[in-house]
Simulated scan of single mutants.
Amino acid sequence: MTDQLEADAGIPVGISACLMGEQVRYNGGHKRSRYCLDVLAERFRLEPFCPELEAGLGVPRDPIRLVGKPGEDPRLVGTKDPSLDVTERLAEVSERFVEQHRHLRGFILMKGSPSCGLERVKVYHDNGMPSHSDSGAFVRALRLHYPELPLEEEARMNDAVLRENFITRVYAFDDWKRHVEPAPSHHVLLQFHSRQKYLLMAHHVEAYRELGRYLADAGRRPLEEAMQHYLQRFMAALSRPATRKTHANALMHVLGYLKRSLDGEIRQDLLAAIEDYRQGHVHLAVPIRMINHYIKRHGSDYVRAQTYLDPHPYELGLRNAI
Rank of each mutant, 00 (worst) to 15 (best):
K177S: 15
R169K: 09
R195P: 03
D174V: 03
F192T: 04
A160W: 01
S185C: 01
D174T: 01
N165C: 02
W176A: 07
E181D: 11
L200K: 03
H193S: 01
S185N: 06
A202D: 04
K177Y: 15
I167R: 07
H187C: 07
V205L: 10
A207E: 14
H203C: 12
A202Q: 00
Q191V: 07
E164K: 10
L190F: 08
H186V: 11
P184A: 11
Y171M: 02
V180P: 00
A160Y: 09
D174N: 15
H203E: 13
N165G: 07
I167K: 02
L162D: 06
H187S: 13
Q191P: 11
R195Y: 02
D174A: 14
R209M: 13
E181R: 04
P182F: 10
W176K: 00
F192P: 09
F173H: 12
A183W: 05
Q191C: 13
R195K: 08
Y171V: 06
V180Y: 10
K177V: 13
V161L: 14
V170S: 08
E181Q: 07
D175A: 06
N165V: 01
K197C: 00
Q196S: 03
A172E: 08
R195N: 05
A183M: 10
F173T: 05
V161I: 14
L162T: 06
Q196M: 14
D175R: 09
D175E: 14
L200S: 00
H186D: 06
E164W: 05
P184W: 05
A202V: 07
V188G: 10
P184H: 02
N165Q: 03
S194T: 01
R178G: 14
I167T: 10
A160S: 12
R163A: 08
F173N: 12
Y171G: 02
Y198D: 01
L189Q: 08
A207I: 08
V170T: 12
V180F: 01
M201H: 13
D175M: 05
N165E: 12
L162G: 08
L200W: 11
T168P: 11
L190D: 05
S185Y: 01
M201W: 03
R163G: 12
V205N: 00
F192H: 05
L200F: 06
D175V: 04
M201Y: 11
R163C: 08
L189N: 08
L199H: 10
R178F: 00
H193F: 03
I167C: 00
H204Y: 00
K177N: 15
E164T: 08
A172H: 07
V170Q: 02
K197D: 06
M201E: 09
H179T: 13
R163V: 01
L200P: 00
